[in-house]
Design a protein around this nucleic acid. Structure first.
Length: 793
DNA sequence: GCGAGCAGCGTACCT
DNA sequence: ACAGGTACGCTGCTCGCG
């Protein structure tokens, strides 16, 4: 019987039955389910003249005879030009690979995953509503696809496990999991030692606990499962325990546990039939794009950073002791707390991930693991299909290496004169690179060959871009920006805090993240749309516009204090704000429509310091006081995680005193106090921790810097540090070199006051004090020990 | 054998 | 594994000196 239905689309992969391929759709109507839809995989080949030969092609692979299902001649746009191609249909996705290898012609789109192919061809994106007719679990017809969904909500749950860890780091073959907590509509803790709490379910043993969790997931049947580092810790650990105990771990549909998948360098665990969202990689991504600033990426710290709330959480090192002591009530409480925090964090992040997923058409699970390159790639791929453009292939490894070896000239940064300044106006170009790409139609397939002119824009590099028609990249980028402009308007009329507002805000944010990634993607070595000429032209036009604005500012009587990429810092001098705004207007009159210089803010005072070794000013380092009393600080040690809190706090105080009071003696007094505290051994170790990320496994370093030395010592004690870990360490008293003295923070017993005075506090404040005229010659000519003595007099 | 000077590695920041 | 531009600490090497 045929039934007309509609459901929320979530993801697609495939299944093969009787040599026929079905798209297997994960959808949610009343309940979440999987449906099948027959659709043939295919690829393209540049072999129109050989249609008959190709149609008869037969290949043997692994003893199986593979043949072409059907061949059509189609017209596609290849590298910007129309071209006839063969569209070669296959029976199974694996046949695409086998047949393409035996087709001795140039092939296209043969490496696009089947699930993605299906979504692209049917114009379906995650969270689309699809209207369909079905017989059993087979879709016979897709009637239409809607974008709007206000009714179907996803059910979410967060979970967390605790493991027995007498050595600090648990050993998955030996150390049992001891507790599993979950939090969502329902909450609870499963364990196997007595704990008198209403939310605790006590089992007999570890096996029962794991099975109990499995049953709980089946019963609650969440669509989305949140975890924090669950893809690389909780789930693999539970699986390892299940294997040791010879039991199953079925968290997904059909008795499956999960499948480890790699998206580039990032790995994750895919639970079949659900959406497993590991918040850790998502948060790392937000950190990478500068949206989240954090010293360390622990759940506790990120929760505080993102929600602004503090919560007591499980101290990993103490877990096994609590378990041995039978302190289960407290452990259960903490464990549930961790799940709750994970849930709350998930709900904070979720709207943005959903919007990124919708816009880029990348399934939510993949979006949670994606890099900006993958997001932009996914978006451009889905825009290519309706434009009938062939999706360019990814470059080979060699090609990517070659691209990486030849970097593209970037932005202009003006050398500032060090000093303290009053009355500064800061302007910046709104979305400089995106607006350049759109204004000059910068696209790899709108690039004219050398010597050809036509109706084109000529970049400062000499490259020429056809004015019409709009290229894929400027077109897509412009739609993002137009969409965003529309949303920003509606946001103003919404009440903050409402669901609608949150959604729209997340959407606007997602659009911004994507728009800002386009230039990077053009110059990204592994990009499908890499173009040296395009990326070079973007930055060249960028330099041209900022230098032009700077020159006009000088002509208008302003002194240009500083400029970086798209920003311009002007000294107002004897001119008022009105003059500055008039200057702004005059600049904007002569810019292309999509480009605009904006007022960022006025500042009453600013500090620019000199470089450490030279007299020249330091770029990308300044502090300014806004009229509302807030301080904008960039580049200083105090914004860096690899400086100790004590040095950063002292530097902040000195900056604040200079900006707000200009009182040199007061600043010196603050520094002296800090030094005294350090000398007397009264500084708290927690204020002395330096955080540094490892970009390799600790064993892979040739030069043993302090963080590597500390990490190696910690690894020897069982701390699981690896590539990407952030190492907290303290410089202690024992040892010769600084590396010798570096100790992993958890194991630090003492500190070296000389190091913290001479290598942390003094370097952080000296350059600033120098701008106050603080014994310049003395500071410049004498060694660190001398200047120290000067302070302690 | 030892310290000074320096190159290069490595990290985190800015836009 | 998104771009380039930039500052700067630390190690480990070279070199000159004795």
């Amino acid at each position: 019987m045929v039934k007309k239905k509609k459901a929320l689309f979530l993801d697609a992969d495939y299944s093969v039955n009787d040599n026929k391929t079905y798209a297997r759709l994960l959808v949610k109507g009343k309940k979440r389910t999987r449906l099948l839809f027959q659709y043939d995989p295919y690829f393209y080949a540049d072999a129109v003249g050989k249609k008959d030969v190709v149609a008869e092609l037969k290949v043997k692979k692994h003893g199986e005879s593979i043949s072409v299902k059907k061949v059509e001649v189609v017209t596609k746009i290849v590298d910007g030009k129309e071209k006839e191609l063969l569209k070669i249909y296959c029976n199974k996705p694996a046949d695409v690979v086998a047949l393409r290898e035996s087709v001795p012609f140039k092939c296209y789109e043969h490496r696009i995953h089947y699930g993605r192919r299906f979504m692209l061809d049917f114009g379906i994106r995650p969270f689309s509503i699809i209207h369909y007719e079905r017989e059993g679990n087979i879709i016979s017809k897709i009637r239409k696809v809607d974008e709007e969904n206000n009714r179907i909500k996803l059910d979410k749950i967060a979970f967390d496990i605790e493991v027995y860890n007498p050595l600090g780091a648990p050993r998955e073959k030996k150390d049992p999991a001891i507790m599993i907590s979950y939090f969502g509509e329902k909450k609870g803790v499963i364990t196997y030692k007595q704990a008198k709490k209403s939310f605790v379910h006590v089992c007999k043993n570890e096996s029962e606990m794991i099975t109990g969790f499995e049953n709980k997931i089946a019963e609650l049947d969440p669509d989305v499962i949140y975890g924090y580092n669950s893809g690389n810790f909780d789930l693999p650990y539970l699986k390892a325990r299940a294997d040791v105990l010879k039991i199953k771990l079925a968290l997904g549909k059909g008795g499956k546990s999960f499948r480890m998948i790699r998206k580039g360098m990032i790995s994750g665990a895919k639970i079949p039939g659900r959406i497993h969202l590991d918040l850790y990689p998502a948060v790392r991504f937000f950190g990478f794009i500068g949206m989240v600033k954090a010293q360390v990426f622990t759940l506790e710290n990120i929760y505080a950073e993102i929600t602004g709330k503090k919560k007591k959480m499980v101290q990993r090192l103490a877990i096994w002791e609590m378990w041995d002591k039978g302190d289960l009530e407290e452990l259960a409480e903490y464990s549930l707390g961790d799940s709750e925090v994970t849930y709350e964090l998930g709900e904070h992040i979720y709207p943005l991930l959903e919007e990124l997923s919708k816009i880029t058409r990348m399934p939510l699970f993949d979006t949670g693991l994606a890099t900006s390159g993958q997001l932009v790639e996914s978006l451009l791929m889905s825009e290519s299909v309706p434009r009938n453009e062939i999706i360019p292939p990814r470059p080979s490894g060699g090609e990517a290496m070659e691209r990486q070896k030849n970097p593209i000239e970037g932005a202009f940064v003006k050398l500032p004169d060090p000093g303290i300044y009053d009355n500064i106006a800061v302007f910046d170009f709104r979305g400089l690179y995106p607006s350049i790409i759109i204004s000059y139609n910068i696209d790899p397939f709108r690039l004219l060959e050398k010597g050809k002119h036509g109706d084109s824009f000529e970049s400062p590099t000499g490259a020429r871009f056809m004015k019409k028609p709009k290229g894929l990249i400027p077109f897509t980028l412009e739609s993002l920006l137009d969409l965003r402009a529309g949303i920003k308007k509606t946001l103003k009329e919404m009440s903050k805090g409402s669901e609608k507002y949150k959604k729209a805000y997340a959407r606007s944010h997602a659009l911004k993240i994507l728009a800002n990634s386009f230039y990077g993607y053009l110059g990204y070595a592994r990009s499908r749309w890499y173009s040296r000429e395009c990326a070079e032209s973007v930055t060249a036009w960028g330099r041209m516009h900022i230098l032009d604005a700077a020159k006009k500012a000088e002509n208008a009587g302003f002194k240009v204090l500083y400029a970086d990429t798209d920003s311009l810092f002007l000294l107002l001098g004897d001119k008022g704000k009105k003059h500055a705004l008039a200057f702004l207007e005059s600049i904007n009159k002569n810019l292309p429509e999509k480009m605009e210089l904006e007022l960022e803010n006025f500042y009453t005072r600013g500090v620019f310091v000199s470089k450490k070794q030279e007299e020249k000013g330091a770029k990308k380092k300044y502090a300014m006081l806004a009229e509302d009393g807030s301080i904008k600080i960039r580049g200083f040690e105090l914004v860096r995680r690899d400086w100790s809190k004590i040095a950063k706090d002292t530097q902040y105080l000195v900056l604040e005193i200079i900006l707000k009071e200009g009182d040199k003696d007061k600043a010196i007094k603050v520094v002296k106090e800090t030094i005294k505290k350090l000398k007397e051994g009264k500084a708290a170790l927690s204020d002395l921790i330096i955080y540094t990320q490892l970009t390799k496994h600790p064993k892979n370093y040739e030069i043993i810097n302090p963080e590597v030395a500390a990490a190696r010592k910690a690894v020897a004690k069982g701390v699981p540090l690896e590539k990407g870990s952030i190492v907290p360490y303290v410089i202690g008293r024992s040892g010769k070199s600084i590396s010798d003295k570096a100790e992993y923070a958890d194991y630090a017993k003492d500190y070296d006051p000389d190091y913290y005075i001479n290598n942390q506090v003094l370097p952080a404040v000296m350059k600033i004090l120098k701008e106050l005229g603080c014994d310049e010659d003395e500071l410049k000519n004498k060694g660190k020990q001398k200047s120290l003595n000067h302070f302690l007099e």
